[in-house]
Design a protein around this nucleic acid. Structure first.
Lengths: 153, 153
DNA sequence: TTCTATTGATCAGTATACTGATTATCAGTA
DNA sequence: TACTGATAATCAGTATACTGATCAATAGAA
């Protein structure tokens, strides 16, 4: 653990940066300009229509202050609508628009391709094991993040 | 690959965020305010005294525009000096100050502890395998990043 | 040697992330 | 019901990352 290039934190940072770059390239190939973060948020809203921003943040493990800007940009692109909840006037209710749904459908293959490219250094067995260990690792440190994942109860 | 919480990109992002949080907490415990990025840069300069910013960026896989700000802040904290090279008037030569060296020594245990906490979900064998697969994965996508790692030749 | 392409550093602008604060609202309790 | 504490969203400020541009300086080719 004496050199930074064998430190997990450093390697994870590098992988994250490559992953973002790969994602953007593949999605751009499909004709869209969307970040991984925006994609995750949009997908989560599609699966959970009418969700509020705080619950969305917990669902994809984003900081609550980050989600505001992400939703801003998705709304500006016409992929999301945001309106006040009728039962809780503090909350904003999110819905995917038709354009947003269309975008998600059209970039789907690019997203899968991006995940594939990201793991191109591993064979099938290694990929499976890597994913298992990655999920286990993330799960064990979930609560140490400012933005832990919170499942909908 | 239909749900974002089994997607490698999403998991890596979450792990990266947890890793940064863990790092900062442990380092703060040692009495310092330093980010993982600043730590990596400072360490790299210590190992390669007199390095210029562009080479440093390649060595730790940072974007060249990012390194300017990182070096700015490390210089402001008194951990680094930056002066024009005498052989190449475009380049800025970096050196770790005594304070910077002292800081590195004093946060060393915290940094190791942070890496340990980050992998607390895995046993020893799993950690080893995870690190092997992580390194292999990162290596295979190195060139797809805007900021690939470039060893000093 | 002169021209061209490249390189080192920086800048403006945008998008995550986070810290810590504020405002409005809600929920539970005395 | 009035009060207290919690919650939803947002804001200001800071730190990575990146795109694309600029400027000065260097290196390599003709």
């Amino acid at each position: 653990m004496d050199s930074y290039d064998v430190m997990p934190g450093h390697l994870v940072r590098r992988l994250q940066q490559a992953a973002v770059a790969i994602f953007q390239v593949e999605v751009a190939r499909a004709g869209y300009d969307m970040t991984p973060v925006q994609y995750a948020a949009l997908t989560a809203v599609r699966v959970n229509p009418g969700i509020d921003q705080a619950t969305l943040a917990g669902l994809i493990a984003y900081d609550r202050t980050t989600i505001t800007g992400v939703v801003d940009r998705l709304t500006q692109k016409g992929f999301l609508t945001r309106k006040p909840s009728e039962t809780d006037r503090r909350a904003r209710i999110l819905q995917v628009t038709e354009n947003g749904d269309k975008a998600l459908r059209e970039i789907q293959p690019a997203v899968e391709q991006a995940q594939h490219i990201m793991l191109r250094g591993l064979d099938d067995a290694e990929s499976q094991e890597f994913m298992r260990l990655l999920a286990k690792t993330v799960n064990a440190v979930n609560e140490l993040s400012r933005a832990p994942l919170k499942a909908i109860r």
